[in-house]
Design a binder for these strands. Structure first.
Lengths: 356, 356
DNA sequence: ATGCGTTAGTAACGCGCGTTACCTACTTGG
DNA sequence: CCAAGTAGGTAACGCGCGTTACTAACGCAT
């Protein structure tokens, strides 16, 4: 199977690559003329004829502009940098996807640099600073800073040297603009959906109560209940580890505590992994979903939500949208808009599947 | 909450950034001297004293080299490009992670460009070519081409202009080197594990039989059985959709076809999503895992395998390793090694959890 | 013939840096 | 005292391109 194909490119004297000068010579004009045509300047006067000659030369020679040289001369790189732990903990990849797509639309390039969690210790400590430093050496025009889960962060000082936007996290120092999910509205829509299905007694499987996600989602749930003239029974809120096991245990606790009559008819799980565990607890007891107990999740982790049986109705985190919005915001900033250090909230849409 | 912080950076006349010249002046030497010190050349003779002065100037002025200019002058960018549909279909993100980490170690930068599936039609057709074109404009020294699932691909012509390595796919034209998972060995290790646990009658939930993953894994399974003097009963191989539902249906078919005595005591599911469905089918019939029926999966999709109950024993696809190996291979190529168009196989380790 | 506006282009500088060739002291051995 | 190093630098070119002068030719009304 192993066969040698070509002599290596690098082995040969690095092919010098055709430059604008070559194109100019081939077309019998000056390099300036070529430059004008390629960047089709408004007020440049080049006859249709020579313009055509130049374009043909470009075609024939296979000329490819040198982005680096262009950046050097024009003093703008068309690059944004994104530094994120998502590369190392790929939970919210869709942020990158959204940012990529938007950047691509804007004809910009996204340089992705890895960072470990801000609170990491050990050999990778300081990796984040190094990453930002590297990006600045590439002369990125702006920075995106994205986290895997919604939280407050401290951004390295050097990030303040260029316009910076935070995604899925916010500046604990309150100096930078950020894009975050609207957890409260999400929690609200989830519970509203349950209410609409007729449920009145709703159990909540909570996360670590301190993180923004838990705070917001729970607040939203309370609001929805209040609108219906109900209150959240504190006894029905059980916190657990943010895993399937945690969800299983919390669900067991709730389910076993009551008789069939008092038992909640629906569970709002604050993330999908916990919902996964809750499924097991419910099925184990011979109950059906959503017949006996409805379940609604949060996060829309595709691999879980779309493959559970029955498929899980859940609230989606708008990762892709946040990524795109981050790039748009950054574009506005680099275009000269004043920096407003607020949090843009992005809605969390309800995804109907089959568990309610 | 909304408060205006600083006047925008871009609004002010773009801060010119301190250059090597500034450093030189500050230290009272020539720019050449600074350059020599910063790239600490061997045979340059700079006294310790001036060297110190220069370093201090760098520190004081906060000098940051301009990567673009450096690339232009030195004719090497230290950049690799990776073009992949992973950005749009994030299943195998770990490839990027592995590549990133390795690139970071080698002090290289990874430019990530999105591509849609090669066989995509519609508005994004040709996006892949555009992505490669963009990367070449950045003067990347080599290309990585990564796919989300193991298959043969046709690489755009322009990719042949620089050293290119395929990851998790192989060149259907047989001209480029590639890194792929060793599916056969993986299938083998899975079945060996079941045999070792005493199972003799093993059901297989198969994928679309045409894709390399199915072919390889099944071949490996046969080998393992042959080593034990057994044969794979064709009746026990059921193909299904590569989803949880597909796995559920296939599992039902197998389980319901036999009496308790003839029924297989173990299921080899060719991917974890199908194993997820199989779990449901098994539990639904009042059977336990692994007590009544052992299950082993393939792919190690963390979100599924680690959160199923019981946690799924499975064979992992070595995404991260393949990414790293891709970069290493590329480094060798750009360093001048001849290009060998073979497929490097990377082992698929067994991950013991609790389902066998 | 003169002046002026337009069209069609070019020469030349600078972006920030790597690199080669050269230059000036200051030793050191004979 | 002289030739031959050697330590410690520097001047200047080029990388590929954007951009700002500036020129040269031409048409046209005065």
């Amino acid at each position: 199977m192993a066969k040698i194909t070509t002599p290596n490119h690098a082995g040969a004297a690095r092919q010098r690559g055709v430059t604008m000068n070559d194109v100019a010579k081939h077309a019998g004009v000056s390099r300036t003329a070529v430059s004008f045509v390629l960047s089709n300047r408004e007020n440049a006067s080049i006859s249709e004829e020579t313009r055509a000659r130049i374009n043909e030369a470009v075609q024939v020679l296979g000329y490819r502009p040198n982005a680096g040289a262009r950046a050097l001369a024009s003093q703008r790189s068309d690059w944004y940098g994104i530094v994120t732990e998502i590369v190392t903990a790929p939970f919210a990849v869709d942020i990158i996807k959204g940012a990529q797509d938007q950047a691509w639309l804007d004809r910009r390039f996204l340089l992705i640099a890895p960072s470990d969690q801000a609170d990491a210790v050990g050999p990778n400590q300081g990796m984040e600073d190094a990453a930002i430093e590297k990006l600045l050496e590439q002369r990125v025009e702006g920075l995106l800073y994205a986290a895997t889960y919604h939280r407050g962060v401290h951004v390295p000082e050097s990030a303040y040297e260029v316009p910076t936007v935070l995604i899925n996290c916010f500046d604990a120092d309150g100096r930078l603009p950020s894009i975050v999910p609207d957890e409260r509205a999400g929690g609200r829509v989830a519970v509203e959906r349950l209410l609409q299905a007729g449920h009145r007694r709703i159990g909540v499987i909570n996360l670590d109560p301190d993180i923004p996600a838990a705070v917001g989602r729970l607040a939203g749930a309370r609001e929805a209940l209040a609108d219906a003239g109900l209150e959240l029974d504190p006894e029905l809120v059980v916190a657990g580890h943010a895993t399937a096991d945690g969800g299983y245990e919390a669900a067991c606790e709730i389910l076993d505590r009551y008789t069939e009559k008092d038992r909640p008819t629906a569970l709002f799980c604050l993330n999908d992994r916990m919902a996964m565990g809750a499924y097991d607890a419910i099925k184990e007891r011979g109950l059906t979903i959503p017949g006996d107990i409805a379940v609604i999740g949060f996060d829309n982790q595709e691999l879980i939500a779309a493959y559970l049986r029955p498929k899980l109705t859940t609230v989606a985190l708008p990762f892709e949208k946040m990524g795109a919005l981050g790039v748009q915001t950054l574009a506005a900033l680099t275009a000269g808009q004043p920096i407003i250090a607020d949090q843009q909230l992005v809605g969390c849409p309800l995804l109907e599947r089959s568990s309610v």
